[in-house]
């Protein structure tokens, strides 16, 4: 407070003052987060770059193929800048990355890495998002049902079911899904991908089975986590209070219990989303999908280190940014978080 003495206590309400202080705090919190985020991204990008040094391939060799001449070898290394110190190469690469240039693939047909990523990323993002959406759609009601009847027959059944799904490896789940929905029922196609640009309906039709495969495992995990948190929340006094003022079961579950119970779920979702975008390799392979997983595996197999670097970087950035957003969402989930640290 300033020391100036005001002659008359102006009827300035304390309200705007309070508000402003809080917004300032929140803004500072977000700025702090951003700085943190940049630092993390720098570390991640350096790690990604350094990864290639750990790869047991000489890029020049993979470009030239076997039986190269010594002078060609030196020339290629010079061209690629491989003879510069690593730190110099890192900043060259980072500078390129920041301007949207991740270099060119070192194996034929020498595509721009950015173009390849732009082709593969939508597939992976769509799969991850669809899988996640389906998982939430299944798991939230399932977890509520289970938690509401905790210890009952339904709960035990759901527990056993989710446990069974979790213990199945994803390729097996994928095969089962294909067997049931594609081979036996013939409802959905297998091993075809239709781009979004070819129409939403067709795209969803083709994306359904892979998304379902992803969703099953996630559903099992989400259901278990959310159920446990819900059981805790349902013991809270405010749940009893909500019932006591006549709110129906559905209202109590969705409006009162869900949000306070979703911290673990949201955290898990962040981790899952990042993971799904980069590592749905098995699902992509099963359904022959041109996603990020396929891209990075193919590049690694051919020693295409530039593509590997670029792809891993993009996945890492998505992962970090997603989780930063998740952190911010805690403030929405619990207003008490807004005022404290953030």
């Amino acid at each position: 407070m300033s020391t100036t003495v005001e002659p008359a206590p102006a009827p300035a309400p304390p309200r705007p003052k309070l508000r402003r202080r809080r917004t300032d705090g929140r803004l500072r919190g977000i700025l702090g987060r951003l700085v943190e985020l940049v630092l993390v991204l720098l570390v991640v990008s350096f790690g990604t770059f350094a990864l290639v040094s750990l790869m047991d391939v000489d890029p020049a060799v993979s470009i030239l193929g076997e039986g190269y001449a010594a002078e060609d070898y030196e020339k290629v290394r010079e061209e690629l800048g491989l003879n510069d110190p690593m730190i110099v190469r890192y900043f060259d690469w980072l500078g390129g990355a920041l301007t949207g240039d991740l270099g060119q693939s070192v194996v034929p047909p020498y595509h721009d890495v950015v173009d390849r990523i732009l082709a593969a990323l939508p597939v992976s993002v769509e799969l991850a998002a669809l899988g996640m959406g389906m998982a939430l759609l299944f798991s939230i009601p399932l977890a509520m049902w289970s938690a509401y009847h905790a210890g009952g027959r339904i709960d035990r059944f759901v527990s056993a079911g989710t446990f069974a799904v979790l213990s199945l490896p994803s390729f097996l789940v994928g095969l089962l899904v294909i067997l049931v929905f594609s081979n036996t029922l013939g409802w959905f196609p297998r091993a075809e991908w239709s781009r979004l640009s070819e129409g939403l309906g067709d795209n969803l039709y083709h994306a359904f089975l892979p998304a379902l495969t992803i969703a099953l495992a996630e559903t099992a995990m989400f259901t278990r986590i959310l159920r446990n948190d819900l059981i805790g929340t349902l013991q809270e006094d405010f749940i009893l209070a909500a019932k006591a003022k006549g709110m129906g079961t559905v209202h109590v579950l969705f409006s009162d219990a869900l949000r306070p119970s979703s911290f673990s779920l949201i955290t898990l979702m962040g981790i899952s989303l990042g993971r799904l975008i980069g590592s749905t390799v098995i699902v992509e392979y099963l359904f022959a999908l041109p996603g990020m997983g396929t891209l990075v595996i193919g590049a690694a197999n051919t020693g295409d280190y530039v593509t590997v670097q670029g792809t891993v970087l993009v996945i890492a950035v998505i992962y970090v940014v997603t989780n930063a957003l998740i952190d911010l969402s805690y403030g929405y989930l619990d207003p008490r978080v807004r005022r404290s640290h953030v």
């Binding site: 006094d237 405010f238 209070a241 909500a242 003022k245 006549g246 709110m247 009162d256 008490r336």
Partner: peptide, 28 residues
């Protein structure tokens, strides 16, 4: 029935709880 009970709760009979710190939903 449960549904009829919820009609009663909060309209004919109300309840005040012990701990006001926990009786209100923190996110509402």
């Amino acid at each position: 029935e449960r549904k009829q009970l919820t009609e009663l709760w909060g309209s004919k009979v109300g309840m005040v709880f012990q701990d006001p710190l926990t009786a209100l939903n923190p996110v509402k």
